[in-house]
């Protein structure tokens, strides 16, 4: 039981951090990481939002490198 509680807590923290990061990334970062996102609409940002939450460490690394 403890391992499951620990795992869900970790997932919650990871997801919450990802949600905060995704909001920032979709607002400012995405156009720096990919020029194709410059001027892209809200629909595009909504479509990639879930992936941004899930893969935020990867995106953060790409953003920092730019």
């Amino acid at each position: 039981m403890q391992w499951a509680e620990g795992l869900t807590t970790m997932l919650g923290v990871y997801g919450a951090a990802g949600a905060v990061f995704a909001a920032l990334f979709l607002w400012k970062g995405v156009a720096h990481v990919d020029a194709g996102a410059r001027g892209a609409g809200i629909g595009f940002r909504a479509v990639i939002a879930a992936g941004c939450v899930a893969l935020w460490p990867l995106l953060a690394a790409k953003w920092v490198r730019r």
Binding site: A37, G39, G41
Partner: peptide, 8 residues
């Protein structure tokens, strides 16, 4: 040169 993304 790149194309601006759209949702679909």
């Amino acid at each position: 040169m790149s194309v601006t993304y759209a949702a679909v």
